[in-house]
């Protein structure tokens, strides 16, 4: 049907993953960090789909569904934690939550 190279798909996934990682490291706002994690997860899912398509097998898509489920669970718990943190510290600054300093 088409000639999309696997290379191109994987490159797209890698770029998205790197962007997500960059966002995670750059931002201090904890909600942005969560969003960046979502981007990274999405990129990983994309990589799975690309790989699955290469062999025309459903396994890649199955893995994507698992990642999707995990992302949903993760975001719900993460948001609850953010709420709690905000109530305790009155800020979204992730550096403020540094009580575990050794």
């Amino acid at each position: 049907m088409n000639g999309i190279s696997m290379e191109a798909g994987l490159l797209l996934a890698a770029i998205l993953f790197a962007l997500g990682l960059m966002g995670l490291l750059m931002r201090r706002n904890i909600i942005f960090m969560l969003v960046s994690v979502e981007i990274m997860l999405n990129a990983a899912g994309l990589a799975f789909i690309v790989a699955g398509m290469r062999w025309a097998q459903p396994d890649g898509q199955v893995m994507f569904i698992f990642i999707l489920t995990m992302a949903a669970a993760e975001v719900s718990v993460g948001l609850a934690l953010i709420l709690q943190l905000y109530h305790q510290l009155k800020t979204l600054d992730s550096d403020a939550a540094s009580r575990m300093r050794g």
Binding site: S5, M6, M53, R54, A56
Partner: peptide, 9 residues
């Protein structure tokens, strides 16, 4: 790498 398969799953 070759191109991906054309068959939709």
């Amino acid at each position: 790498v070759p191109t991906t398969a054309t068959v939709p799953v």
